[in-house]
């Protein structure tokens, strides 16, 4: 639920703006106190858990670490996780573009309500996200009998995992794009049309370049959640080793079997994914700031 809009980091003028300003700076002791408390809190609650993953993963040495990752069940979990993300992310990307186009560029009744509905999956517990597909496609569900008659398995199979993942990552791209495209308005698209551009030319040459960073941002967050989702997938997976286990589920199984080093080894891959996600996210924010300031920098 990375519900944070693409924000351009504030100016790096903190020092001049705040710390040397006699009117608004705190005394040295207060400053040190605030810094100490907040950084200690940060270290205990965020940094330590992150470090612990890697330390625990390597506790029994590199050999055990590598063995845990190349073991067939681990490999199949990695494959399933990649497959799930490869289906869920592009679908939600297309949805995000469509929803943002309709909502940001046109006026229609019920628009605000639709925007709220799009955010809905973020406020639903992942467990319920899994449950609802069991109710629809499970053996006891609405389509259960029909599906089993036709030999189609959705729950306790890969399609269910993908569906649940799509649900929990549903709003990521849309919610990055909607506010940005609303702020950009329709004038540039209209200008492209008056200059003779076709609908697709307008989209590829004007709309897309204007939203590319926000789009990438949404995709990265969407992907991180898609690969890391646990609760929703856990409900619909059935935990069949080598078949319906994603990486997070594999971690759980190993952990519950007291194979701690192996569990943490797989977990460390997911933690790396998280770090790469954060790095890319920071890079995009940096790009956006840099472009804004570069383009505005030489203002005469």
């Amino acid at each position: 639920m990375a519900g944070v809009a693409l924000a351009v980091p504030g100016p790096q003028r903190a020092r001049a703006r705040y710390e040397t300003n006699p009117a608004i700076r705190e005394s040295g002791a207060v400053r040190i106190l605030i810094l100490t408390i907040s950084l200690l809190f940060f270290a205990t609650f965020l940094l330590l858990p992150l470090i612990a993953v890697f330390v625990e993963a390597l506790r029994r040495g590199w050999a055990v670490y590598v063995a845990a990752l190349v073991e067939p069940d681990a490999l199949s979990a990695i494959r399933l996780t990649l497959l799930t993300a490869a289906v869920a992310v592009p679908l939600n990307l297309i949805f995000g573009l469509a929803a943002a186009w309709a909502i940001a560029k046109f006026e229609f009744r019920g628009k605000q309500f639709l925007t709220t509905l799009i955010d809905l999956p973020f406020s639903v517990s992942p467990v319920i996200a899994g449950l609802i597909y069991v109710l629809v496609f499970g053996a006891q569900g609405w389509f259960g009998p029909w599906l089993s008659e036709h030999g189609i398995k959705i729950i306790f199979a890969v399609p269910g995992i993908i569906l649940a993942t799509i649900f929990v990552t549903f709003p990521f791209v849309a919610r990055e794009l909607i506010p940005l495209m609303q702020a950009q308005g329709t004038e540039e698209e209209e200008a492209a049309l008056t200059l003779g551009a076709s609908g697709w030319q307008m989209f590829w040459r004007v709309t897309l370049p204007n939203i590319k960073w926000a789009l990438l941002y949404g995709v990265i967050l969407c992907n991180a959640r898609a690969m890391g989702e646990f609760g929703a997938v856990s409900v619909v997976s059935g935990h069949i080793r080598g078949l319906t286990n994603t990486m997070p589920l594999h971690v759980e199984i190993l952990y519950n079997e007291y194979q701690f080093a192996a569990a943490f080894a797989v977990a460390s891959l997911l933690a790396l994914l998280a770090l790469v996600t954060l790095a890319l996210k920071t890079y995009i924010e940096w790009q956006v700031t840099r472009q804004t300031s570069r383009r505005e920098g030489e203002h005469p």
């Binding site: 004038e187 540039e188 209209e190 200008a191 492209a192 008056t194 200059l195 003779g196 551009a197 076709s198 030319q201 040459r205 004007v206 370049p209 204007n210 383009r295």
Partner: peptide, 27 residues
């Protein structure tokens, strides 16, 4: 029709040259 928008609607990701060339390139 040539339309000049109130806030100009220049394509922010394109240079001045490419802005002016836009109408020719999409022909």
């Amino acid at each position: 029709v040539g339309f000049v928008f109130q806030h100009y609607a220049l394509f922010r990701h394109l240079t001045v040259f490419e802005n002016v060339a836009f109408g020719l390139r999409v022909k």
